[in-house]
Design a protein around this nucleic acid. Structure first.
Lengths: 194, 194
DNA sequence: TCGAAACCAGAACGCTCGTTACGGTACAGC
DNA sequence: GCTGTACCGTAACGAGCGTTCTGGTTTCGA
């Protein structure tokens, strides 16, 4: 969190602007000029740093994934018990969305995969990495709660999490994170009961 | 299901082609020419019938919503009990995806809203209609199972359903419909227990 | 102080795409 | 047979966008 009045270097400004504009108004709907204007950067600078709009998008997505992972980490260590660690992904989502001062329509990775179906592997790879991260961690946290059926529970929590994200796009229901957490908790209880 | 060798009229061919191509390769990624080629129709015909690509997209989405609703209807009447009616949406989804001979990446309405964020109201209205349909019906079927907390249950099932759709986009988990159904069932049981 | 590297504004290029225009053909109803 | 309607293939237009180019200015370490 840099709070000095110093201007960030051009590359950082571009990434920040991309994160702010791209995932709110839409990736394809945002022309390069809008990014340049937001970042107060010239076109030549963008292309010397990144080479193409797609490459900038990919890098912005990677940064975002790393940020999101960091926020999730914090909520995992702050959790008190096994159930708390499993459900930490929902607290992290609430925290991540609260902390970013610019809105995101829903999930940058899912949106990118939808908007750029034939995109370079670089871009779709970030969604794959996000899914991989979710699947691995949720399986890990499911084990102490569901034992042999941990995989089933992990799949269910991943679905609840994805459903929460999609609810932002639908604009319904109104507190999707609460609903998703409830859903995940009842799934966990269902598995730990048997 | 027309099985005659007769060629469909141009308007119907266009709608069919739109449904086949648009929601697989992506709406923005599919140029008008690809639709014309698939439908074996000239450009002039498209524009006399629909006026614009966006209008064709909107109409194709409306047709799709009506089709989907019809499939869902069938599975509702075929269901045997309250729980079956609530979960019929998952059976309908499985049936709908099986019956269409062309693949859909995930959900046409959610994809359209993502790809065309600033689209004419016509297009975003279809996602709103889909959400409205889901919310209304799920609330209706939740009542006999959850009574006063029917709204909570309906919200949860909608999230499970949305999560299932999103899982297709992620490519994970591998049988999202089964996972979604399990999630919805345990939510329903949780509510009927209390 | 010098020189290189980073950066700027703006114009220009080339391509894609949605849309329209043009001239011609098949065919239904009167 | 005539006429109008629906449709065809193709060419052209115009706008938007990603990318590159040009020429000049700032920044900053040696």
């Amino acid at each position: 969190m840099v709070t000095t009045g110093q201007r960030l270097p051009a590359r950082a400004r571009l990434l920040k602007a991309a994160d702010q504009v791209l995932f709110d108004h839409g990736i394809r709907a945002t022309p390069v000029d809008a990014l340049l204007q937001q970042a107060e950067v010239s076109a030549a600078t963008l292309y010397t740093h990144f080479g193409s709009k797609d490459a900038l998008v990919a890098e912005a997505l990677r940064v975002r994934l790393a940020d999101w992972q960091g926020v999730w980490d914090q909520h995992i260590v702050a959790a008190g018990d096994d159930m708390g660690r499993l459900l930490a992904v929902f607290d992290a989502l609430a925290s991540y969305r609260r902390d970013q001062n610019h809105p995101s329509r829903w999930c940058a990775f899912l949106a990118a995969a939808t908007e750029l179906p034939a995109a370079a592997d670089e871009i779709s790879a970030v969604l794959a990495a996000d899914t991989e991260l979710l699947a691995t961690r949720l399986l890990h946290f499911s084990r102490p709660l569901a034992g042999a059926r941990a995989q089933d529970l992990a799949d269910e929590v991943l679905l609840a999490y994805s459903g929460t994200l999609t609810a932002f796009l639908r604009g319904y229901p109104h507190s999707p994170i609460d609903v998703g957490r409830r859903l995940a908790r009842s799934a966990a209880q269902e598995h730990s009961r048997s």
